[in-house]
Simulated scan of single mutants.
Amino acid sequence: MPVRRDRLRRAGESAFGALLLTRMILMTLLALLMVTGGAWSSWDTARDALRPPQGAAGPLTLAACDRERCTGTFGPSGETVALYQRIGREPGETLEVALRPGTAEVVRTGAPGVLYACLPLAGSLLLAGIVIGGGLRMYRTAWATAGAGIALLATAFALW
């Protein structure tokens, strides 16, 4: 004959199960929010690097560089534009860039430009890997997510 548990114990077990389910749902939503935010942040720059507006792509010859940006002459129009970046460049270099509509800013085009634009996505993948591993206890998925973020970071800096 099975032993019957009292109501208080059954209610406690049900509440604990509900807490576990709530934790899983919240951690999943947090990880999805992180990756979505990183992709959204990356898309603003990646859009111009992937498909430059008609007549807004060309070479940029760097004239001066500081810690925040490099300025130079944009080939097709001859105007002075700024390339905002954190990695050091040397004056005299020529880069393929695209002019952002309505601004005097340019972004790199091609694979280096797209990968550099995707750095916020890479950071969000790294953070989501921590949430997936620590909060959801899905260790293989966490390693795969963090590995994708690390690979994206390494490739972006290798091609930049």
Rank of each mutant, 00 (worst) to 15 (best):
A11V: 12
S14L: 12
A18F: 10
A18P: 03
L21A: 15
T22W: 09
I25H: 02
M27Q: 12
M27V: 13
M27G: 11
T28V: 03
A31Y: 13
L32D: 11
L32I: 14
L32G: 14
L32N: 13
V35D: 14
V35H: 13
T36D: 08
G37D: 13
G38V: 14
S42M: 09
S42F: 03
W43D: 10
D44N: 14
A46S: 11
R47H: 13
A49I: 06
L50N: 08
R51G: 01
R51E: 07
P52V: 02
P53I: 07
P53C: 02
Q54T: 14
A56L: 15
A56H: 13
A56M: 15
A56C: 09
A57S: 15
P59Y: 07
P59H: 12
L60F: 14
T61N: 03
T61Q: 13
T61D: 03
A63S: 15
A63F: 10
C65F: 09
R67K: 15
E68C: 07
C70R: 08
T71H: 07
T71N: 08
G72V: 09
G72L: 05
T73C: 08
F74H: 02
F74R: 02
G75W: 03
P76M: 04
P76H: 02
P76D: 04
S77N: 03
V81T: 01
V81F: 01
Q85E: 15
R86E: 06
R86D: 07
I87Q: 12
I87T: 14
I87S: 12
I87D: 07
E93M: 09
E93Y: 00
T94F: 01
L95R: 08
E96G: 05
V97S: 04
V97E: 04
L99W: 01
G102D: 08
G102V: 06
T103A: 05
E105I: 01
E105Y: 03
V107T: 10
R108Y: 11
T109Q: 11
G110V: 02
A111D: 06
P112E: 08
G113V: 10
V114A: 03
V114E: 01
L115E: 00
Y116V: 01
L119N: 05
P120W: 04
A122S: 13
A122H: 08
G123C: 11
L125Q: 00
L125S: 00
L126I: 11
A128N: 11
I130E: 01
I130K: 00
I132S: 09
G133P: 09
G134D: 01
G134A: 13
G135C: 08
G135E: 06
L136Q: 13
R137K: 14
Y139I: 10
R140K: 09
T141F: 00
A142M: 05
A144P: 01
T145S: 07
A146Q: 02
A148Q: 02
A148S: 10
I150Q: 03
A151H: 04
A151W: 03
